[in-house]
Design a protein around this nucleic acid. Structure first.
Lengths: 226, 226
DNA sequence: ATAAATCTGTTGTAAATACAACGAAATAAA
DNA sequence: TTTATTTCGTTGTATTTACAACAGATTTAT
């Protein structure tokens, strides 16, 4: 396991755990190491899982398959990232997705029951681990909630204004940079890029926003609070 | 606190904790009790919180306010329900919403640092508590992810088929009941009800689905898996 | 049983979007 | 610098939707 220490140090689950503590902690979690060839199935849709995974090398993909058998790739996950943690901790939920190795990959599996049961010798680390896992799930929750608020809007105009409004609030200023290019933003909002471009132009011509590349500005005044 | 025992027993955070254990556990968590009048502000947008709440009586609303000051109610939460847990455990995240008492309410606040730090006398309960909280966050995560997959589709037709497909898979049969009436389903998918009704009719006339009230059936054959 | 209220499906219209095709602008590579 | 590539905005068209108004069906209340 030693050769993966550098990778493991970057994993969010082990945040604020010092390198010398990592080794004994891992021993305590008794993770299962496994190698997969490209296109091997890691988790199968319909499974109920008790372990989540960490990608040590390679890459895995989260694949959705609907009732009719149409597949679509929901996510690609690489080195140092977790996968399956939501389903592992959501007891009795069946996986609606499959996890497939997108390349030859080395994965580490940790049983979530190990994570919550404190073991005699390393309670200190366990506490940090649990805190990290709560933080991971909570952060994901927050970002999913924010995204739902956007994609639930019915028009591109509404989606854009909701997104830009949120970014302005996050920045604390009416002028800010966004972390997407146009195609990325369109994908994030689940709309057509060129249609979105057209709406952006309209908003600018109406004097509601201004933008240049990734820098945006909201022009209209904030309503006064009562 | 005794008068709220019946309510607390129904709270998901205390699942699988027996009534006699609840009292000492609460003492250990040292929750803060507070009363709010209608329209009082519980959490303010922009706050960073370390505690989450439990509604003992009354009702609270989650309110979103955008850059322009437009308010919209995202959720109503009543007796026995948690609120704010995602933000409390997502350290350093600022609340993008406000929490306001929708009626005279009695609330209980629990510091999330208390929840993760084991105290000498009640580690057994703490473990269950942590397991429950991980479960709560994970389940929310799962349902948010599923919802995002639906509302990200671009047409009502796609949304409906994705939703019905997921329900069929969940049920393990091509025929199943859905937990919404038409308006509820339209709200869930973020579309117009009458437009959705029209699309449902089209799908039925095309022989793709069949339905009657809340009972739906997918008619087309599953693709054979390779 | 009757009336009232709610839910559901239908239709027409105006509005918004997806999609495709294209050219200009910006960026990266040679 | 020149070329190649990517990104971005514009336009036209066909598709899809939201919205409003309405009628039949179903459920609930009286």
């Amino acid at each position: 396991m030693k050769k993966y220490i550098e990778t493991l140090k970057t994993v969010s689950l082990f945040k604020d755990i010092k390198e010398p503590d990592l080794q004994p902690l891992l021993a305590c979690l008794s993770p299962k190491f496994a190698q997969y060839g490209k296109n091997d199935i890691v988790f199968m849709s319909g499974d109920s899982i008790n372990s989540f995974g960490i990608v040590l090398s390679g890459q895995i993909q989260i694949v959705m398959e609907d009732f009719y058998g149409n597949r679509s790739i929901l996510a690609l996950t690489g080195k140092g990232n977790l996968f399956g943690e939501s389903f592992a901790f959501a007891q009795n939920e069946f996986l609606p997705v499959s996890v497939i190795a997108a390349a030859d990959s080395e994965l580490l599996f940790i049983d979530c029951r190990r994570l919550v049961s404190p073991c005699s010798n390393s309670c200190v680390y366990h506490r940090q681990l649990i805190e990290n896992m709560l933080n991971i799930l909570a952060l994901k929750n927050v970002s999913l909630t924010q995204k739902i608020e956007l994609v639930s809007k019915k028009t591109i105009r509404e989606k854009l204004l909701a997104y830009l409004s949120a970014e302005a609030q996050k920045a604390g200023k009416s002028s800010f940079y966004i972390p997407f290019d146009r195609q990325g933003l369109a994908d994030y909002l689940s709309v057509d890029r060129s249609a979105m471009s057209a709406v952006l132009s309209t908003l600018r011509s109406e004097g509601i926003i201004n933008y240049r590349k990734n820098k945006f500005e909201l022009l209209k005044q904030r309503k006064n609070l009562p």
